[in-house]
Simulated scan of single mutants.
Amino acid sequence: MIAQGKRILGSLAMAFTAAAALTVAVPVGSAYAIDHVECVGGADFLKIYSHLDGRQSVDCYANAGRTDFGGWWADRIVTGNNDLIYYDVNGDSVRINRWTDITFPNNPPRIKSIQIL
């Protein structure tokens, strides 16, 4: 009975050691975080021209990830070197491929959030 307990204890110790070794040895994956960046001429950032309640805005974004856009109306989207999905306030999602410049003169989408792929 004591020998069996020692074997179980030894097995648990080896399993714990192996798990700890794998935890240290396996590299952590890349974290994705979209960034609101300064719009710089010549940069290939995602650039969104928008308006809400009489205010106009031009915003640029870099890096993969998803962020809130606050329900602003998009007048123009320039994707630069980014593939984009925007999510409108009605629950629809629209993908726009990189190197696309699209304007919405008559029926602009009201964007809830954006995602750079």
Rank of each mutant, 00 (worst) to 15 (best):
V58L: 12
R110A: 08
I111Q: 09
D53H: 15
A20M: 13
Q115H: 10
V26I: 13
S11I: 04
G91M: 09
G5I: 15
S11Y: 00
N82V: 02
V89L: 07
W99S: 12
Q115W: 12
F104I: 01
Y32R: 01
V24N: 09
G42D: 03
R76S: 10
R55K: 15
L117S: 13
A20D: 11
K112C: 06
W72D: 02
S50F: 04
N97G: 14
G10E: 06
V40W: 00
G71Q: 11
P109Y: 08
R98H: 09
I102C: 10
F69D: 05
G5N: 10
V26P: 08
F45C: 00
D68F: 08
I114F: 12
R110P: 04
K6S: 01
P27I: 05
C60T: 05
I96S: 13
W73Y: 12
F69T: 12
A64E: 15
G29I: 02
A15Q: 01
L117P: 02
N63D: 12
G41V: 00
I8T: 04
V24W: 14
S50A: 06
T17R: 11
I116W: 04
S113M: 06
C60E: 06
D88Q: 13
Q115R: 08
L52E: 03
T100G: 12
I34Y: 03
Y32N: 10
I96G: 14
Y87K: 08
V28L: 07
K6Y: 01
Y87A: 07
S11W: 02
R98I: 09
D92I: 09
D101L: 06
G80T: 03
I48F: 02
G91P: 15
D101W: 05
Y87V: 13
I48S: 06
I85V: 15
E38T: 08
K112T: 07
C39V: 00
D44I: 01
R7P: 00
P105N: 04
K112S: 13
A31E: 06
R55D: 11
I102K: 10
T100Q: 08
L117A: 09
S30Q: 11
I96D: 13
D101H: 08
H36N: 03
A31G: 07
R7Q: 07
D53R: 10
N106D: 05
R95I: 07
T103N: 13
F45G: 00
V26C: 14
E38F: 00
H36G: 01
R66F: 15
I102R: 10
N90P: 03
D53Q: 15
R98P: 05
A62W: 11
Y49L: 11
